[in-house]
């Protein structure tokens, strides 16, 4: 066993690009699910419209990258309005089904032959974020970082931008959730009718929450797309939303830093299990699965982890007992 590579890979994943992507998705979900109690199961749809917003603007319509970013964010707002206007009056489980269906509709449309003229069909679009890559101040070919955290120049640039975005979003959530605005949101999560009886416009607050969380999800999708320079429809399947929920619940819903810690730990654990399983298989310790199957085993562990967390620690690994005692509703 090569423990050095296990730890190095794990630590790199801990602060890596996937952690940034899922931190952003989960910060958005935290606003929806953690604070407002909205069961949005279509978060990946927001990521998709953000990513495709920027990719199509640049590739298909030859607009500048910055305009593409603006369009991507607006697409997030538009999706939130489109979804929210009719569905926010629905019961929680109906909203879950409606949003998951909407995100699947988006994916099927993005990959359809009929729209491939604009979307690139099932192959998606590539090389639309050269502006982002060219802004990179780091020297190509050089390595940056310290200890195990050594990254190539493009990754260093992406990580710098990514974690800055995460930091800004965290600050935004922190400010909002300690304000009276956040108090109303939490009240709606606890009991809509109570909030209504105290003169709060529940529908409008839910809409604001859906838009805000959705736009942060779109930002995540955009970041991921810009950093990989590609969008592919099948990368926006419902599994991504489910993983974002796993991230959120791992770190603790309704906590400002919950989604960020969740994303870091999630990818750390996923990387470790992948490397360990991979080495066990290639060294012949495990014979009943192949190395390509070992990659899937970690997804099984995500599912198992989500079940165990929800059963034993629904408040997340850092949550407090006192709060969970109230959950026996």
């Amino acid at each position: 066993m090569d423990f050095n590579s296990i730890v190095t890979n794990g630590l790199q994943a801990f602060v890596g690009l996937d952690a940034v992507y899922f931190a952003l998705l989960a910060i958005g979900l935290n606003i929806h699910f953690g604070y407002a109690g909205l069961l949005n199961f279509g978060q990946v749809g927001f990521a998709a419209v953000g990513a495709y917003g920027v990719a199509m603007s640049v590739t298909t319509f030859h607009l500048p990258f910055a305009v593409g970013v603006a369009i991507g964010l607006l697409a997030g707002v538009a999706l939130a309005l489109l979804l929210g206007l009719p569905t926010l009056r629905l019961r929680a489980d109906y909203l879950a089904i409606a949003t998951i269906a909407a995100s699947e509709i988006l994916r099927l449309c993005f990959r359809s032959v009929a729209l491939s003229k604009w979307t690139g069909g099932s192959d998606g679009l590539n090389q639309f974020a050269n502006t982002f890559a060219n802004l990179n101040p780091f020297t190509p070919g050089a390595k940056y970082g310290f200890g195990p955290f050594v990254f190539s120049a493009p990754d260093t640039w992406s990580l710098l931008v990514g974690w800055t975005l995460v930091g800004l979003c965290v600050l935004l959530v922190f400010l909002l959730m300690r304000s009276p605005w956040g108090r109303v949101l939490k009240a709606i999560r606890e009991d809509e009718d109570a909030a209504r009886s105290l003169g709060k416009n529940v529908y409008w607050y839910k809409m604001q929450a859906l838009i805000l969380g959705g736009v942060i999800g779109s930002l995540g999708g955009m970041f991921d797309a810009a950093q990989t320079q590609s969008v592919q429809p099948d990368n926006y399947g419902t599994t991504i939303t489910f993983f974002a929920y796993a991230v959120l619940i791992l770190g603790g819903a309704a906590r400002v830093l919950g989604p960020v810690l969740g994303a870091m730990i999630f990818w750390f654990l996923l990387s470790i299990t992948e490397t360990v399983l991979g080495q066990l298989v290639s060294n012949g310790y495990i014979t009943f699965i192949t190395s390509s199957q070992a990659g899937k085993v970690r997804f099984m562990l995500v599912g198992l982890g989500l079940i165990l967390l929800m059963v034993f620690r629904p408040q997340g690994i850092f949550g407090n007992r006192r709060e969970i005692a109230l959950d026996a509703r």
Binding site: A194, R196, S197, L198, G199, L326
Partner: peptide, 21 residues
Amino acid sequence: HLVARRGVVRTFQLTKALAKL
């Protein structure tokens, strides 16, 4: 919510204390 803002507030048969606030 507008009825409430005009000055008519109500309580509920099943109490609606907001548990996690």
